[in-house]
């Protein structure tokens, strides 16, 4: 009994020592947001991802690359511009509608939304006839346009610091989506030594100037008011999708696997007990 209380004391002491360790950071803790993608049944809010993509294209894409994504990814299952064929009851013709729908999925390369998004971007390429460098309209199969020709150009344009690629940014930072959103909202407006004061950035000084400077700098198409906080939340939502595009498929499969394994565990337990029923042990 005495020994047991000793153990309780040891673990209590360890828990006590661990507590301040977790809070020992110099920057403010990012505020927690109730994201729709959290939890075992969480899903992306397609509208938020679409709005966030608009913020990325209008604001972030001037400096930040998204190297691991192609435009076609936007139209793939789970993506913001996924589309499917539906039958128009009045005309009897098949039409394309945004969303997973019930009909046949639209091939991302044929998806008119994705094609329009890609076509609006000029992509650097080599002219096959002349071998000269040229620019052409983008296609769904193209990678997202990198704002800089190479890393030296990126460094030169940003005072020596290369703006990080955003493909997996939400996974690459402790605190994930909450942290990314907090950084976008953490500017105090002060500038020191050519860097900017940010309450949530380790060390307090960040190289990136506040990207979201005024409400309405992105023209939302769905009527949502483009406040700075709304834009920060939306672009973080988009970047979460960019970091983890198969989340929906993963969680859906997870549910099936969990149900299967729990039933299998019950069956193997019964079989095990049945085999051992006459065995003394």
């Amino acid at each position: 009994m005495k020994l047991r209380s000793l153990w309780v004391a040891v673990f209590a002491a360890l828990a006590f020592l661990a507590a301040p360790a977790l809070a020992a950071e110099d920057a403010e803790h990012p505020p927690a947001v109730a994201w729709s993608f959290e939890g075992p049944f969480g899903k992306y809010d397609v509208n938020a991802v679409q709005r966030g993509f608009l913020v990325y294209q209008t604001v972030c894409a001037t400096c930040h690359s998204l190297n691991h994504l192609s435009y076609r990814n936007l139209g793939e299952p789970g993506g913001p511009y996924e589309a499917s064929w539906v039958m128009n009851e009045e005309t009897g013709e098949r039409e394309i509608e945004l969303g997973a729908g019930h009909g046949r999925r639209v091939d991302p390369n044929e998806n008119p939304y994705v094609r329009a998004i890609a076509a609006a971007v000029m992509i650097r390429d080599i002219d096959r006839e002349t071998g000269e460098e040229t620019e052409r309209a983008g296609r769904p199969s193209d990678r997202f346009r990198n704002p800089y020709r190479n890393s030296a150009a990126a460094a030169a344009a940003n005072g020596g610091a290369i703006p990080p690629d955003l493909s997996v940014i939400n996974l690459a930072r402790k605190g994930g989506a909450d942290y990314i959103r907090a950084i976008l909202l953490g500017y105090t407006g002060e500038e020191r030594e050519g860097r900017y004061v940010n309450r949530y950035f380790s060390g307090g000084l960040i190289g990136m100037p506040s990207p979201l400077t005024q409400a309405g700098m992105v023209a939302y198409e769905d009527g949502t008011e483009a406040t700075i906080e709304q834009m920060a939340t939306d672009v973080t939502h988009f970047l979460q999708w960019a970091s983890d595009p198969h989340m929906a498929a993963r969680k859906e499969m997870g549910l099936v696997v969990m149900v299967f394994l729990i039933i299998l565990a019950a069956l193997t337990y019964l079989a095990y007990k049945n085999v051992w029923r006459d065995v003394k042990h």
Partner: peptide, 17 residues
């Protein structure tokens, strides 16, 4: 087999969630 199935449940929680 039973113990492995229980272990797999833990495994799957990490893989999928």
């Amino acid at each position: 087999l039973f113990a492995l199935t229980v272990f797999l449940i833990l495994f799957a929680i990490f893989v999928f969630y």
